[in-house]
Design a protein around this nucleic acid. Sequence first.
DNA 1: GCCCGACGACTTAAATACAC
DNA 2: GTGTATTTAAGTCGTCGGGC
Length: 322
Amino acid sequence: MGITIKDIAKAAGVSYSTVSKALNDSPLVKKETKQKILRVADEMGYQPNIAAKKLVSNESRTIGVVWPTVERVALTTLAAKINAALEQQKYHMLLSINPTKTAVDLFNRFQVDGVLVFGEEAHEEIISSSIPLLYYGEPGPATYPTIDVNRRKAIQLGVRHLVQLGHSRIAYIGDLNPQHSNQREKATGYTLGMEEAGYSHLHEAVDSRGLSWQAGYQAVKQLLSKKKPTALISASYDLTVGIIRGIKELHLTIPQDISLVSYDHIPEMEKLDVPVTAVGTPVQTIATEITNHLLQLASGKKVPPAILDVELFQRQSSRSPE
DNA sequence: GCCCGACGACTTAAATACAC
DNA sequence: GTGTATTTAAGTCGTCGGGC
């Protein structure tokens, strides 16, 4: 059993009602008394009991997040930003790495105020929840709202950028599994971008069969053993890490021998061996939008589906072909 | 199956203590 | 007597276990 306001009341020599008021910054408690109570609470390591608060306020100020993988850097960055945004609103975040249905059931039992589902894979199970759910990425059941990045437009932007630089032999490396609709969107963006530029005949999409750095490494080796594109578009940050490694091992340089544009608009792109041109929605914007949506859902409001606009952030990895 | 009490945090109204 | 600070008591919330 942890420290309760009754323990603090006893230690501070006041009633628990006064402790409650002091902890909630009530003007009905004298400044000196309030400071003393806060000091005692701090010394005793007091942490409010979320379950008890929920009984009174009917809100836990906690958001559950169904976490698909701990391996993807872009998602880890996004989760950290969401956590920071929720903290600013005095909310807490709980992560579950259980399968979606198990995690949602668990969060229902914990009575969190809302649940964010990272839809990285197709949702075959029908999830039912009395708590508001928000899906990011892969859409969930039609009854729940979805927020996503315009992935198709992002990759199209990348193709346009490379075409404007003078590239025509532009290849794409990404997960081409038709069951993953958000990955399919990126591949469609590539196809449309190539069509728009009149380069359909140069279309070269390589299935990385996953989004890990290893997948990117294997895919780029496979591609460059047969073809010699002047530019590459990668479908994710992790793939990009593997692609850079593969290109380096083949004694090619970025961007002199091959230009590179990557999906995932995250600050980590700046820190790679070669700072990489990125397309997508800035991760901070995604985090802010997701947080706003979650808090609206938690307060009982309805939110429409949202598709976030994208941008291109040019760095050293892309330039005109030599 | 129904009722009741307990759990912890919180609110509120009423009562009390104390200084001026 | 008045005003301020604090205490007391009661009630609320959802869930669970125990007693009848």
